[in-house]
Design a protein around this nucleic acid. Structure first.
Lengths: 140, 140
DNA sequence: TGCTATTTGCAATAGACTTGCAATAATGTC
DNA sequence: GACATTATTGCAAGTCTATTGCAAATAGCA
């Protein structure tokens, strides 16, 4: 179970498993799209979980620090989204400009490119974002 | 000269060439890194150009609408940057996490990938971001 | 030069996210 | 299981980026 593994990570960094952390984790676990802080807040409110938006921000940041959650900044959305890492492979996303639906792209073509960039620029590449926008089948 | 071409684009959309638009354009023309609104504001202040930050935002938005300027959202920077398009090829960037230096990557490997994504997801792909972070030679 | 519509600056506002602090709750110890 | 310690929460306030309303200034044309 996910919760037990996470409890361990929390304890190791002097942190505690709390009602609100459980709730955020459970929500991310049952949701199959990356969620923004305000979406997490709204969904938990609807599920009768008492939580403050501030706590949502603090929670996703803790989960990010523990390496359990990934922060995404999609193309010109103006807010971050969060998704559970939980054994998932590195991947990217495409978002529909009309309905906002986000679909995972289970591929990353950038290993070779990263090497090329390191050679050309003498940078050490640390991370990258690659996000697409477009129009989904329903909205075309 | 760039200004004459731009004056035309402005007139065609019922707009005017103004002191502040000239100043922003000239700054972007002589700068070789994408600039944020607050950087444009600060640099113009230093150059004794009287301009309000609001006007900077409005100006870059107009230039974007005219297709003269590109808006970039680099990886987790929390602000947009703008660069002159002016006959430049589509390209991407890498930013140093230490000193913030931004270097152009004069390549884009995504044509084939875009096609593949369209086949797999049935989306029509409209745009993409691809930005790298890392450590530049001086900061390693 | 003068007229009119566009643009500007200022103040106020919006939205995402963070911080300070007192109150609350989770964990280890007895 | 109760207690003490320390992390966490909620609330209010603050920060930062960006936008909007409106009166005053100014570009472009006759």
């Amino acid at each position: 179970m996910l919760e037990t593994a996470i409890r361990k990570g929390l304890r190791e960094t002097g942190r505690r498993m709390t009602r609100t952390r459980k709730a955020v984790l459970a929500l991310l676990e049952r949701t199959h799209e990356p969620l923004s802080a305000s979406e997490i807040f709204a969904q938990l409110q609807q599920a009768q979980v008492a939580i403050d938006l501030v706590t949502v921000y603090r929670t996703v940041n803790v989960l990010k620090e523990l390496g359990l959650v990934l922060q995404l900044d999609l193309f010109q959305e103006g807010q971050s989204r969060y998704e559970l890492k939980e054994g998932r492979k590195h991947h990217h996303h495409i978002r529909c400009q009309i309905c906002g639906r986000i679909v995972d792209l289970l591929l990353c073509p950038l290993k070779k490119l990263t090497k090329l960039i390191e050679e050309r620029t003498q940078f050490v590449v640390d991370d990258h974002t690659l996000e697409f926008t477009g129009f989904c089948p329903k909205c075309q």
